[in-house]
Simulated assay, not measured.
Amino acid sequence: MGKGQVNKYLLDQWIKDYRWMINTIEELQSELPIKGAKTAQYGIEATLPKASGGTSDVVFSEMARRSNHLRKINDYIYKIQEVQKRIEKVTEPRETEVLFWLLEGKSLRWIGQHMALSHVTIKNIKDSVVDSMLK
């Protein structure tokens, strides 16, 4: 995801995805405490020609897979920060409650039952929350 203009659709999606993105980051940080480890080649290995195309080195392939995942994690961090810096713009009590439960990963129906409102009303409140966050 590029770091461009945040629109209503993107912000709505980031709110929906917020909980699992947080969980993914927490899990990764607990399992991978070492960041930025690099491997250098010295001696004769540094002078040998490198194969072009794919590689059969399983360790290299695993490191590439993890590197790609870390790039996605950095994207998640950007999205989470964008949502978090807009939370304070939501000031209405109903909107604040709906936003809290959305960020906890609850469905519109669950929130509606919890607040004794229809899921359609909750959807309208959610739309109002997203509009408030974009101001």
Rank of each mutant, 00 (worst) to 15 (best):
M1C: 04
K3W: 04
Q5L: 09
Q5I: 06
V6I: 14
Y9S: 07
Y9F: 10
L11M: 06
L11P: 01
W14L: 01
I15N: 04
K16V: 10
D17T: 02
R19P: 04
R19C: 14
W20T: 08
I22A: 01
I22V: 15
N23R: 11
E26V: 08
Q29Y: 13
Q41M: 07
Q41F: 06
E45Q: 10
A46W: 14
T47R: 09
T47H: 11
L48Q: 10
L48M: 15
A51T: 11
G54N: 09
V58Y: 09
V58H: 05
E62C: 05
M63S: 10
R65Y: 13
N68K: 07
H69E: 09
R71T: 05
R71F: 10
I73S: 01
N74A: 14
Y78A: 03
K79L: 02
V83A: 01
V83Y: 01
K85G: 01
K85Q: 11
T91V: 15
R94H: 00
E95C: 11
T96C: 09
V98L: 13
L99G: 02
L99A: 13
L103S: 05
L103A: 08
K106I: 04
S107I: 08
S107P: 07
L108R: 10
I111W: 14
M115G: 00
S118E: 12
S118K: 02
H119N: 11
H119W: 12
T121H: 15
K123R: 14
I125A: 05
S128P: 00
V129W: 07
D131V: 08
S132W: 04
M133R: 10
L134A: 05
K135H: 14
